[in-house]
Every structure is written in structure tokens, then in C-alpha cells.
Design a protein around this nucleic acid. Structure first.
Lengths: 165, 165
DNA sequence: CCCCCTAATGATAATAATTCTCATTATCAT
DNA sequence: ATGATAATGAGAATTATTATCATTAGGGGG
């Protein structure tokens, strides 16, 4: 009850799920960051608060929250999934991602979301009707090279870098 | 030389890469499908053509093509990556994806891409300028429940389905 | 406030996708 | 054709994620 997030608390209770320490801690961690944490990142943060909580519980909780639609699971191209609390649970606006394919840096952006939002809404409605989907969420990722990696590329390798195997 | 895809051929040669049998076969497979093949799917198709080609080569080739920007690697939420030849190498139009989070069905859609294209282009330019990224590609995914899974949900479980662990 | 039922957990084994190693082969510039 | 070496095949190794199962703790009922 004295825990951080009344919104999240409500959602759990509404589904008949228990408010456990692990869930409280993980939700708190997610609601305090704008980084894109992997299960491992989260595990170590959780351990810093309560070292008795296990890795499996972190995975289970993230999976649960994802299935409930409170958390979005991302793959940015390195081998591990990343997790982010969804709009509504965080104060900051809905955003999309800019991913550097070389150094894996991820930039959140909220610019143009007004226009985007409108188009997304429209597209969503049309797709829902045409394909009879009940659309719950979406992701938009742009991939490219960040400034640093661009100049590195330019200096060391004018074309595409070391591609051979 | 007498292989299928002059466009792809050129890109490889331009990078000083060899045109090997495995690469030819894999490019051919990718250019003939609109499905979203996993590495394993591709491996078995490759084996049907030349059984001496190994799994590692399939992975290596897909990774190479992805790094070259000829192939896009996707994660639709099941544990495995899926690969698709990028616009330019295929005749059919650029498309985005509609993913059923329950049965994992994937629908390509090309509707609204005109409007989308314009917005994407605009966003891309602005992001490139603001964050100094060299943007190479993007993905848009919508997630939700397909018709079949929606009605199943309705019949068996009015709210969110079995969420507990 | 204590008790009980059972959802949830911790520890660890198991699984599965992807990557690495290294001896061998095949591509292609010459 | 020939040689330098990029690319490969086979399988071992790695790593993220999931399953198992005995134990613990959340929370409704007394």
C-alpha cells in the first residue's frame, strides 16, 4: 500500500494478482528510469534493493507485466530483450526510438508525435477494421548511425566498414 | 553470374565480397518469399537445394546481409529472429507489420503507406538533423489480437485471460 | 491478529537460438 | 591454371530465457 505506484497497484489487484515485494520493486525501478533496461540490468538493480530476489522472478514479472500490457518488450538488435513501462504508468510522453546499429545507442524522441499520433490513430483504426485486429500497441524504430559512429566510419572506412566474415 | 539477382550481386561485388553458392541460394530464397522466415526456416529451404550448406553459414550470411542493409532482421516476440529482404531487392512495395500477440500471426500491410511515407520521410529528416543520425531504415509494428484470437478470448476469458504464473 | 490456501518465489537444471573455433574448401584476381 | 585468402562445415561453446519443484509469503476468512 505504501508502495510507489497506485496505478500499477490497481491493475494488479484488478486481475486478482498479489502485490509481492518483487513486483513492487520492479515496477518502481521501471517507473524511475527512461533507460531501456534488459532483464539482467533490472536483476542487478533489484538485487541492490533486495538481494534475495532471483533472476527467474525478474523474468516472470517482466513477462507478466508485458502480457498485461503495462510493459513493452523491445528488441533493439543485440541479443537481449529490453523493457519499458508503457505510457500511462510513466509521466513522460509516449515516444519512439532511434537506434544506432553500430554502437547500439538508443535515443528516445517525442518530436512530431502529434502528427505521428494522428496518423497512427488513423492507420490503427483502418487496420483494425480491415484486418479485424484489436490493436493494443505499436512501435516505431528508426535505424541508422549516430554522429560518433558516422565519423568513425568516415575516417576508418569510407564505405560500409568491415563486412567480411 | 547466371544467378538470380543482379542487384544483390552488384552490392556484394561492390563490397569486395565473394559470390558464393550459399549467398546465392539464400538471396534467391529471400527474394522469392513474402513470408517472415527464421534462420531455421531458411536453413531447411537451403538444405532442400544444397544439403551440404551448414547452419552457421546461414547465420553468417543473414548477419552479413543485415549489416549491409540488404536484409531487415525482425523480432516479433517469439524467441527467434526473422529476416526479410529490404525494399529495392524485392518488387513488392515497402510494408509494415501487424502482429497478433497471441497466435503470432503476422500480416503485412501496405495500406496508407503513401501518407505514412510522407510522415516517415519528414520525421526521418528532422530526426537526422536534430540527433545527427544517418538514418538507414525503420520499422513500424502494430501489436494486438487477430480476429480468431479475439473471439477465443471473448468466449473463454472476458478480461485478460490467464495471467497468473 | 492468526491461520490457511495457494499464488508466487528461489535455486538450479534444461532448453533453444545464436556465435565461435578451426581445419578444410572454393572464389577470383592474376 | 594457380595461389592467396575469404568463406565454409561441423560441432562445441555461449548466452538469454524458460521449466521444475520444493519452499515461502500474500491476503481473505475466521
Amino acid at each position: 500500500m505504501r508502495c510507489g505506484n497506485p496505478w500499477a497497484h490497481q491493475r494488479l489487484v484488478a486481475e486478482g494478482l498479489r502485490i509481492t515485494e518483487a513486483r513492487r520493486i520492479i515496477l518502481n525501478i521501471l517507473s524511475k528510469t527512461s533507460k531501456h533496461l534488459s532483464a539482467e540490468d533490472i536483476y542487478f538493480l533489484v538485487r541492490g534493493i533486495n538481494p534475495s530476489i532471483g533472476f527467474a522472478t525478474v523474468y516472470r514479472t517482466l513477462d507478466l507485466l508485458t502480457r498485461m500490457g503495462m510493459v513493452q518488450k523491445f528488441d533493439f538488435g543485440d541479443g537481449k530483450a529490453r523493457y519499458e513501462l508503457i505510457e500511462g504508468s510513466r509521466k513522460d510522453a509516449h515516444h519512439h526510438h532511434l537506434v544506432c546499429t553500430k554502437c547500439r545507442k538508443i535515443v528516445n524522441y517525442t518530436d512530431f508525435v502529434d502528427e505521428e499520433k494522428e496518423l497512427i490513430k488513423k492507420t490503427e483504426d483502418a487496420l483494425a477494421k480491415k484486418h479485424r485486429f484489436d490493436i493494443k500497441s505499436h512501435i516505431i524504430h528508426f535505424y541508422g548511425l549516430c554522429e560518433t559512429c558516422r565519423s568513425e566510419d568516415k575516417n576508418h572506412n569510407p564505405s560500409l566498414g568491415k563486412l567480411s566474415m
